[in-house]
């Protein structure tokens, strides 16, 4: 972008950048460029939109942090809670569409003629990146079994790295007990062995041996902060979460609200 500017303007920008730099600020040498234009102007847009429509009827794109500048990444639900799409847009390039599940990840690319090609790799699995033989990693199928098909309950995701999620686990468990709904606790999949052993000793609860490995909970944001509480009803997990430690009444209010609704 800078190379398209007249040389004298370019020099002024460079000099002002150096000036800011010398003052210890991070020089801003990029002008305002709304990043939403990246996905709108993507190559092979028609073909990629068609592919996405064939994979899900959902239109609710959830924008997430991209791993590079001038890139946009979106998550999109499919009809199956255990499969999500990720759509990656990079400036001037054709998008990449990923189908993510515990079983496999299918990467859809588009060639220069906008013809789609597939690459299949192993599934979403924290137990490979963070192996831990003493813990059970709960994937979507196993989570479905834990939730059952006609019960209500909460899923409490917690981590030894965030002390309040450990301290207040009992508050959530008690709220679930009071409302006579199920309580499932899942541990941060990245938690270290040392921390887990300490917490298992401290709490002495059987909850400590389950770790989150669900694509659905991950995509909904279940590992971004601890604790995070989801509500489930009839085997369906709420998209709405309660993030952080709330007081008893707020927890009860949220459980009642979500279990009383269609989620």
């Amino acid at each position: 972008m800078l190379t398209k500017l007249p040389l004298n303007i370019f020099i002024i920008i460079m000099l002002s950048g150096n000036f800011l730099f010398a003052k210890g600020k991070i020089a801003r040498k990029v002008s305002r460029d709304p990043s939403s234009a990246i996905s709108t102007n993507a190559a092979c847009k028609t073909e990629s939109d068609r592919l996405i429509s064939s994979l899900t009827s959902s239109k609710k794109l959830i924008k997430v942090q991209a791993d590079a500048t001038d890139k946009e990444v979106f998550r999109l639900k499919t009809e199956s809670p255990s499969k999500w799409l990720e759509i990656h847009y990079e400036k001037s390039l054709a998008p990449k569409v990923y189908e993510i599940s515990n079983e496999k990840i299918i990467e859809h690319n588009f060639d220069s003629h906008c013809k789609a090609k597939q690459k299949i790799s192993s599934g979403f699995d924290f137990s490979k990146s963070y192996p831990d033989k003493q813990m059970k990693f709960v994937n979507d199928a196993e989570l479905q079994n834990l939730m059952g098909h006609n019960r209500k309950g909460i899923i409490y995701v917690w981590s030894p790295s965030m002390v309040y999620s450990v301290k207040f686990l009992k508050r959530y468990r008690d709220a679930a007990k009071e409302l006579k709904v199920d309580f499932i606790s899942l541990l941060d999949p990245r938690a270290s062995d040392t921390d887990q052993h300490m917490i298992a000793t401290e709490l002495g609860t059987p909850e400590t041996n389950l770790k989150l490995n669900s694509v659905n909970l991950f995509m909904l944001g279940g590992t971004e902060h601890f604790p995070t509480m989801f509500v489930f009803k009839n085997g369906v997990v709420s998209e709405e979460m309660l993030v952080g430690v709330y007081d008893h009444d707020s927890i009860v209010s949220k459980i009642n609200q979500l279990t009383g609704s269609g989620l």
Binding site: I26, V64, D67, I100, E107, S129
Partner: peptide
């Protein structure tokens, strides 16, 4: 910090 994605094998990163 924010979660990763399929392109970076879900490594959590720091962003500005």
């Amino acid at each position: 910090n924010a979660e990763g994605n399929a392109a970076n094998n879900y490594v959590r990163g720091v962003y500005l």
